[in-house]
Design a protein around this nucleic acid. Sequence first.
DNA 1: TATGAATGAGTCTTCATTCAT
DNA 2: CATGAATGAAGACTCATTCAT
Lengths: 226, 226, 226, 226
Amino acid sequence: MDTPTPTNTFDKLPSEKRQRVLEESLQEFAEHGYHQASINRIVGRLGIAKGSVFQYFGSKEGLFKHLFKSALDQIKAPLRAIRDAEEPKDFGARLRLIFSTSAAFARSHALIWRLYRRLIHQEDFPLRGMLLGEVRAEALTFFREVVEAAQKRGEVRLDLDPQAAAFVIESCLDRALAAQDQPLLDADFGLSSSNEALRQARLDALVDILRQGLQTAPTQGDRPHD
Amino acid sequence: MDTPTPTNTFDKLPSEKRQRVLEESLQEFAEHGYHQASINRIVGRLGIAKGSVFQYFGSKEGLFKHLFKSALDQIKAPLRAIRDAEEPKDFGARLRLIFSTSAAFARSHALIWRLYRRLIHQEDFPLRGMLLGEVRAEALTFFREVVEAAQKRGEVRLDLDPQAAAFVIESCLDRALAAQDQPLLDADFGLSSSNEALRQARLDALVDILRQGLQTAPTQGDRPHD
Amino acid sequence: MDTPTPTNTFDKLPSEKRQRVLEESLQEFAEHGYHQASINRIVGRLGIAKGSVFQYFGSKEGLFKHLFKSALDQIKAPLRAIRDAEEPKDFGARLRLIFSTSAAFARSHALIWRLYRRLIHQEDFPLRGMLLGEVRAEALTFFREVVEAAQKRGEVRLDLDPQAAAFVIESCLDRALAAQDQPLLDADFGLSSSNEALRQARLDALVDILRQGLQTAPTQGDRPHD
Amino acid sequence: MDTPTPTNTFDKLPSEKRQRVLEESLQEFAEHGYHQASINRIVGRLGIAKGSVFQYFGSKEGLFKHLFKSALDQIKAPLRAIRDAEEPKDFGARLRLIFSTSAAFARSHALIWRLYRRLIHQEDFPLRGMLLGEVRAEALTFFREVVEAAQKRGEVRLDLDPQAAAFVIESCLDRALAAQDQPLLDADFGLSSSNEALRQARLDALVDILRQGLQTAPTQGDRPHD
DNA sequence: TATGAATGAGTCTTCATTCAT
DNA sequence: CATGAATGAAGACTCATTCAT
């Protein structure tokens, strides 16, 4: 019931079939969420026997777990590439790059992102703690490190709590990615527009606010008047 | 299909019972989402017959709709009170007040907030468009107005797009409220701590970032060229 | 459970209300048949309390029984009028008159006729035996008498079994009335047409066949060659 | 919605089981009509799980459709045999043969016939239009052709509308078959008697009337004037 | 007497899971 | 190892009937 079997049947499948199984499952889980996803529909689209899914993964939960981990694997490399990319000179440019690259990536992997958002915001996924724990720790750590690095270079205020900064950045990015996938959340802001230039401008506007803040001048005298 | 009767059955119930029904339903929908919510469980907890729910609301969807609208009604008054409150002198104080009041309110109405978050982030709620449309328009308008007012008073940069500002503020607040309800999302930041002072400090840190931004000094000539 | 009560509540109602109750019930039973008829819908349309129906009639079955008997009462007078009408000189004219009058009557009382057809052809009506027994006996007797009278006058073959004749006449009339109410049964014959002259012509064609038969000449020599 | 699979589950069952399923279902639908038929009862009698029926047919409607079509298939061959049989010399003999063969057939397939009558006379069957359309068109065409053939041979009056003739013949046959299955409709005429000779005599009496008509001699100048 | 809230058995339907082939 | 038929618990929903008010 836990691990499908020592000798994992699924892994021995021709990789083409393996891929199709995961793709259709991703489609189903992303579209319907965990409980509402139907193995009937998945095997229907795949044209394979229902029993096979259980042979491969033991249970619906097993399928989901495998699927999610495999999706993470697909994502990790590109995301790490973003992280480890040649750092642009300044923090602002870096942030802009992160936002636009993430947005492009989320567009090209819409289903994975949708599934990820479901996992974040829906409490009744199995293994949610385990799966989410890993991912979020990594994401928040990443943003924190970006901020800390910028602090070391003197580009970001030293009195800033890097954790708080990471929290704000991630909130904003996450919502932006959601909005670009869901017009209802976009609410005419423009992130779900099909006009790429407009989307880019909106992302820049968000980054700009994160960088410069909302206020004209600090209230407490902790930044010099110019 | 068969409207229960012109004069709604549920409205005529003793208010004590009415309240219990709504409470248990809210509990169920907040905990499980729409599809996974079980009317069997609801009536089980209530100790009433399953048929009654259908006499009251006609369908699961009817129950959900009624429930959500009634939740909105409960929320609206306090939120409007926040909005229309004696405005603090400056924008920063106002933002801090909004965050802390919202957080307090979301704590005392955790289930409503949980349900609202599901509605926002889960795509398969019935009536989602309708319900969400109403609410989000109001929320975003509110934040935009707050920003615009501050711009008029010269407290917020005039070159700022109020819509973008509202987007950032709402993303951040929404995620903060989620985090305080769900340790997994908090990831040790402190918003889900039971220590009220700590929570307040964290909220202030977020607001501070929104106000002042991340960077030490605005760099002005760094817009991307490619 | 059997008889609603000695002092029948329903009979004491203002006749206007009584009528409405029966009309709406007729509508419902005619449209949906016995089991599929819904007391919910009936009281919904009537705007009265569901309990009232049970106070008046004790049960769904009681309502149906009362309804059907009352429908019969409404029908009987006009049908008897047809029966006892000034007899036209010859049998053919009489038959034509019966067909056309019945058709006109069935058109103006479509619901009753529909209900009657359901009772005839559907086996799962309560009290079917009792209700149907009465009616059909009367109808067949009527046709038999018409035939016998014509035989006495020498207009109809004496070697004819009046019962068989009545059977044929009734089959044909019944189907014609059904066809005029249901295009699917009419199958382009013309009885469900909105053109009255056409309908009349079709009825006449049927009567003509009943009178004269299908064959050009008797095969067995039992009718004179002319 | 989810077609059980391209290759229909039910068709692959051992034919013995397939047969039992169809028999019990036919029994249920014939006895109770579509809406009142209970899948619970069917599976109860079959001793199989409720889910199986839905695996086989997808829905109650699917079961009914399959059942009806399979019943038609059973019927068609023998009925076509009747139609295409070596034609007896004269029209009267042919009609008698059709009536007696149909009656025999309806006796040995009482349930199918009962179901067919329900479909004809009950308006709330799913797919009624489709199913009925097919069957009735064929039946009426058949009778019309029989009449027309007889007209060509000079055995039937040429002034006769073949459609009207087909209508009368079918009305009469349909009612006769109903009567032999339901004593209530027979009303002591004898078609439901267990005495085969009597039944045959009654059928012959009906055919005789169709052939020769009711009247002693055709009256030719009595068309209605008003 | 009229009301209509409460009931609960019954409806069709879905689905993850098992297991003999 | 793949298959897909069988399962049965659970789902939403309907409805005639009862009974306290």
